[in-house]
Design a protein around this nucleic acid. Structure first.
Length: 1156
RNA sequence: GCUGAAGUGGUGGAAUUGGUAGACACGCUGGACUUAAAAUCCAGUGGUCAGUAAUGGCCGUGCGGGUUCAAGUCCCGCCUUCAGUACCA
């Protein structure tokens, strides 16, 4: 009987589905007999996004590897969890919906069907009873639930974990926020318990939002107009969107954010405990970007600062002003409505600057300032306003809202009875300079506080708020023009141009906190405003950028390193260098100096040790339809969580999937999207007039929401009452082996770790890292096929040149090679048609055969030119002009020959093209390795492979291609190797048409083959070296075929070894051997070393390290006996040519080396 | 620039702690079977030189050094490719 993969594979796939062979049980729950003793093992693939294109052969690579491992673990006696599902929310389905109006749920459903069919036919041992889909309400109910948990939590730095907000509130009630050590927004005003209790509910909610782990905030986001949504940092590549490559701009929006920064240190520390690939860990470390150093404060020298009234704001502040004027608060707007109507002398302006202070309203004619109270620097403002001759009035928000008319009348009163205050000229300078000296300081973060004595200047970002305040008159023009110039450059330009050094001197000086020396203050756009404090202390001798800047502007470069030459470049190396010229730090090494510097700073009070992270909080809102809705409604503008018992909040139906006309997200199109807080359900928007009905959140969650916890759901996938039961979470704990692509390094894998740690803090999950071991499978690349088209010129009968745009001559690959190799010959043929073969052979020393070949081809081409109506082709000594186009790889056979008919049918424009073929009529393409993609016509569909060669062949071949982690090209031609291996295997069990397996005892030779295989395959699987075990199987089958072995003792265990790789054929032969049960949980054969023991070794005999011949010697010989035997050998004597060996090295069982 | 990975026949790739480089497979060449093709089977296949041949010599793991009896493997210095990241103070 012939091996028929089609029947066998169908039969066993049906068998597995019917018998639920791979269903994993939760023993604690089900108390399945015998399962309790089995150790658990959880193998997971990164679940796929079901795209419309279906799978190509690159996709299953990781699934095959994990499937082999899962099946192997079953043979090894583990209770294996190996689930699969779909990350089914996402952009492509929505884009498709926008284009066609089809509901994304529908296309997603269809795509999933295709995926499932494709996955099934490859024979994966997934437990489909646990399938999850992120877009199904039963699943996202729990995504919403986790969101609520995050909302109700804050990060306590003292306990270093997330805790309940309820506990935080009780602290606020009792003692205010002074004792709370939380990860929260910057600049939270401190309040006492009395103040807290006096706050309105809304004010309290506003404050709490600043602590919650997920919070609403106005954040600068990456807005992608083409996609109509914001993108996370990791969704942007080189300034454009990862998906689609559309431009991205910075924009301020109110968004949900996740306080992932709270977990920065723990995310970093956790990396030490997990077995993940080094590069992946490295990119997470980069992304988190921890830098340890110190915050240092430099005071600004008062000497050169001009008077405050001349101060102009920086352009950044001016921009901010414009925005402020447009966005007045409710109280501000009410008051402005009244004030702006005042005519004549009492004309008010809003949001105006007086000196460096921003005032709410001012009437310049009457010298009256009107402000809202509650500003931090009220005392300083009062002092300055008085000194500048202003009267001022202050009101609270509440006063204005309650009775604006009373407020206005009070203002009128002040105008009427204002006492003109004399400006005290003599006094003013004194007051001003005193306040200034203490007012202006520059905070910097440095990772090298040990080099602080090397500071010779400071650099501020041009946008830094101090710039305008400290710039001297003399430098004003310079600074202004520099600021204007930088402002014009986009962020991308600034990033792209690293080489140009630019900057400007402000004229101001800072005081070195240790030495008291004056240090120049510069501005330069190499300093980024939104990183750190937007200012650096420049140490030119130790930092290359500072060095270049100093060199460029002729700023001194003090050397603070002992015995280091810094005349050419900065010395950035920290280890092994001693600090010099640095007061109390001199003579110390990096580490000691660093600690001492921080210690001194803290003692003297102008600095402290600090750790900075690059990791920013993650924006969690997307202006999209096809994602998880938030369980959130808005009451009085403040977000409210819907109680978890009313979850899931199901995605509403919409007319169209685009943003609304007034720019709201697509959910703004929904008509049934309001929350009835009395009846606890989603109702029609028409009811929004009711006092108990509120608008629901219009944003949806990002793609990473659903994928950040799905691995936990698989443990108890159908649980309707819980996220997952505690018992199943405690049993399965974490993923033991996680396989997926490296593109998720900083997205999915970082966010998932963050959520896992959060859920761990809250006691939901038992472990704080979700995957013990992770492997990145390498990409499978496509082997594209190219056809070359002639693009040179012809010579017409009248000797005119003619281009070839409408003539199509296609060259087979080796034709091009021949022409390129002999271009000069062609040129000669063309130039001197009378030249004889002998002349050519003599002139160019080429073989006669080549000349014939060249001449034939020349004739063909000449004929062709004539046929097209030309005299000949224009030959050129240097180049043959051709252009290459992709040909679909499905038209190309294993010998790189193109199916011309198929090609012509595919590309109509080449129907009447001329094909210059090989002598045998074949047409060859040239091949190149590229990424597998539709546009390159090199996509190979696994369906075709499975139909032609079978799933077992596909599985073996994908593994055989090379190491799992490595990128490698796909070439379908190679699959015949594994295919014929399976046929050979089949033949071991058959005698012609009859299944025939002998019960005889196996010979030691046969046992040796088997046990070698057991040993190697087991080692390989444990090391995830799947490619080498495929070779091992081939060697075994070749060996057994040579031995003519058909003994059960060998052939039965062989099937178990093979079954993880080629499960269908193994099951089939296993059952033909008379076994009734599936092979899937049969014990893995045990390796026995005794079968490998040899009595003799074929020793390689080397001379000076070079192997000359081999010599078979018994293994039980002593060193002396081996030496004697080798030296007596005639070949040795011949090699030595009479010389005496200087030394003989003998490694018994390994090698003999003779040094002569 | 920095970080990480990797450079081995025509191709994909093997090679334990340093110990016979090129396993296994594709492709190619030759042969068997066939009217023919496909399929299958057998043999050969790193380069080069010598020899009718058996066989033998030399060179060979990106480049240049080094350690060692012995280096694809270890050390030093370069080059190239791929991936990630980037004015991160």
């Amino acid at each position: 009987m012939q091996y028929n993969h089609l029947d066998i594979e169908k039969k066993w796939q049906e068998f597995w589905a019917k018998n639920q062979t791979f269903k994993a049980s939760n023993p604690v729950l089900s108390n399945v007999e015998g399962q309790l003793e089995k150790p658990k093992y959880y193998v997971l693939d990164m679940f796929p996004y079901p795209s419309g294109a279906g799978l190509h052969v690159g996709h299953p690579l990781g699934y095959i590897a994990s499937d082999i491992y899962a099946r192997y673990k079953r043979h090894k006696g583990f209770n294996v969890l190996h689930p699969q599902g779909y990350d089914s929310f996402g952009l492509p389905a929505e884009q498709y919906a926008i284009q066609t109006g089809q509901h994304p749920a529908k296309t997603t459903e269809e795509n999933i069907k295709t995926y499932r069919r494709q996955l099934d036919q490859i024979g994966f041992s997934f437990d489909w009873s646990r399938e999850v889909r992120t877009s199904s309400p039963e699943y996202y109910k729990w995504t919403q639930w986790i969101f609520i948990q995050l909302f109700n939590s804050w990060y306590n730095k003292d306990t270093d974990k997330a805790e309940d907000v309820a506990a935080l509130i009780s602290v606020f009630k009792k003692e205010g926020n002074a004792t709370v050590n939380a990860v929260c927004d910057e600049e939270i005003a401190s309040f006492s318990s009395d103040e807290w209790n006096a706050f309105s509910t809304k004010e309290q909610e506003e404050i709490l939002l600043q602590y919650r782990l997920t919070f609403l905030s106005d954040t600068e986001v990456n807005w992608c107009a083409e996609l109509g949504t914001v993108l996370a940092n990791d969704e942007i590549v080189n300034g454009v969107s990862e998906r689609g490559g559309y431009p991205v701009v910075r924009k301020k929006m109110t968004q949900w954010s996740m306080r992932i920064s709270a977990y920065a240190q723990r995310l970093l520390d956790g990396l030490e405990t997990i077995d993940w690939p080094q590069p992946l860990k490295e990119s997470q470390r980069n992304w988190i970007g921890r830098s340890q150093g110190a915050m240092v404060t430099f005071k600004v020298d008062s000497g050169a600062i001009k008077s405050t009234s001349e101060v102009k704001l920086s352009y950044k502040e001016l921009e901010a002003l414009k925005v402020l004027r447009l966005n007045l608060s409710k109280a501000e707007a009410i008051l402005w409505d009244e004030l702006k109507n005042k005519k004549g002398a009492a004309k008010f302006r809003k949001k105006y600057t007086i000196g460096t202070f921003l005032v709410d309203y001012v009437c310049l004619a009457k010298n009256i300032i009107v402000e809202f109270s509650g500003k931090e620097d009220e005392a300083a403002r009062a002092e300055f306003f008085t000194s500048e001759g202003f009267n001022f009035v202050r009101f609270t928000n509440q006063e204005v809202i309650d009775n604006v008319l009373a407020v206005v009348s009070k203002i009128n009163n002040t105008i009427q009875f204002s006492k003109p205050i004399e400006k005290l000229e003599s006094n003013q300078n004194v007051i001003a300079s005193e306040t200034k000296q203490s007012a202006y300081k520059i905070d910097v973060f440095t990772t090298r506080p040990d080099t602080i004595f090397g500071v010779s200047f400071m650099t501020l970002a041009p946008e830094h708020e101090l710039v305008a305040k400290i710039t001297t008159d003399a430098q004003k023009a310079d600074v202004q023009s520099y600021i204007t110039a930088t402002a014009k450059r986009s962020e991308r330009d600034r990033m792209a141009d690293v080489k140009t050094i630019s900057g400007a001197f402000t004229g101001a000086y800072a005081i070195h906190p240790f030495s008291g020396e004056k240090v120049q203050i510069w501005i330069g756009d190499y300093v980024l405003a939104n990183y750190g404090t937007g200012a650096v202390m420049a140490v030119p001798c130790g930092d290359q950028r500072d060095y270049d800047f100093a060199k460029h502007f002729n700023i001194p470069i003090p050397n603070i390193f002992e015995g280091v030459d810094i005349s050419e470049a900065a010395h950035a190396d920290k280890d092994g260098t001693k600090i010099a010229n640095s007061d109390f730090l001199s003579g110390l090494k990096y580490k000691k100096a660093l600690k001492l510097a921080i210690f001194e700073m803290e003692k003297r009070g102008f600095g402290y040790g600090k750790i900075n992270y690059r990791l920013r909080d993650a924006v969690f809102s997307r202006q999209r339809y096809w994602g998880e809705p938030f369980p959130v409604y808005y009451k009085d503008g403040m977000p409210q969580m819907i109680d978890e018992k009313h979850l899931p909040i199901v995605l509403p139906e919409v007319e169209k999937y685009l943003p609304t006309e007034d720019g709201k997200p697509p959910l703004g199109n929904a008509t049934e999207w309001a929350w009835d807080s009395r009846n606890k359900k989603v109702v029609s928007n028409e009811k929004l007039k009711n006092k108990t009905v509120f608008p629901l959140e219009l944003n949806t969650m990002p793609g990473w929401a659903g994928s950040s916890w799905y691995f936990n759901r698989y443990m108890d996938a159908t649980n309707a009452t819980e996220f997952a039961s505690k018992e199943s979470l405690d049993y399965w704990k974490e993923v033991d082996l996680y396989i997926g692509g490296s593109e998720h390094a900083t997205g999915h894998l970082l966010y998932a770790r963050f959520w896992q740690k959060f859920l761990f803090d809250k006691g939901v999950v038992p472990v704080d890292e979700f995957a013990k071991k992770l492997i990145n499978q390498g990409m499978i690349l496509g082997t594209s096929a190219f056809v070359s088209i002639f693009e040179g010129s012809f010579i017409a009968e009248d000797d005119d040149l003619s281009s070839t745009t409408d003539t199509k001559i296609l060259f087979s690959k080796s034709v091009i090679d021949v022409i390129n190799k002999n271009r000069i010959l062609y040129y000669d043929f063309w130039n001197k048609p009378t030249i004889s073969d002998d002349e050519i052979i003599e002139k160019y020393h080429v073989a006669e055969a080549d000349v014939v070949k060249v001449k034939n081809l020349y004739g063909t081409l000449l004929e062709l030119a004539k046929k097209l109506g030309f005299k000949s082709i224009l030959w050129n000594k240097e180049v043959l002009k051709v252009r290459s186009i992709h040909a679909d790889v499905s038209f190309v056979n294993s010998s790189d020959e193109l199916d011309l008919e198929a090609f012509k049918n595919w590309r109509a424009e080449f129907k009447d093209a001329e094909f210059i073929t090989e002598e045998d009529g074949a047409f060859e393409v040239s091949r190149e390795v590229e990424k597998m993609s539709k546009s390159k016509y090199n996509v190979v569909n696994p369906d075709d492979i499975v139909t032609q060669y079978g799933a077992d062949s596909l599985r073996l071949f994908e593994m055989f291609l090379g190491p799992l982690e490595q990128a490698k090209p796909w070439n379908t031609a190679g699959i015949s190797g594994v295919s014929s291996f399976l046929k050979k295997l089949w033949k071991l069990y058959y005698n012609e048409e009859v299944f025939e397996v002998s019960e005889e005892k196996a010979t030691s030779e046969e046992l040796k083959v088997l046990h070698k295989t057991i040993k190697k395959v087991e080692e390989d699987i444990e090391n995830f070296s799947f490619n080498t075990s495929v070779s091992t199987f081939m060697i075994a089958v070749n060996g057994l075929t040579a031995l003519n072995c058909n003994k059960r003792e060998i052939l039965e265990p062989l099937l178990v070894l093979l079954s993880p790789y080629a499960p269908h054929i193994s099951e089939e032969l296993w059952s033909q051997l008379g076994n009734k049960e599936s092979i899937s949980t049969v014990d893995f054969p045990v390796f026995d070393a005794k079968h490998l023991v040899e009595s003799a070794k074929n020793y390689p005999i080397s001379f000076n390290g070079k192997m000359r011949f081999t010599l078979e010697l018994p293994l039980d010989l002593s060193k002396e006996e081996i030496e004697k035997a080798v030296l007596e050998n005639e070949k040795t004597i011949a090699q030595l040519e009479g010389k005496a060996p200087k030394k003989v090295i003998i490694v018994p069982g390994k090698i003999v080396n003779i040094v002569s």
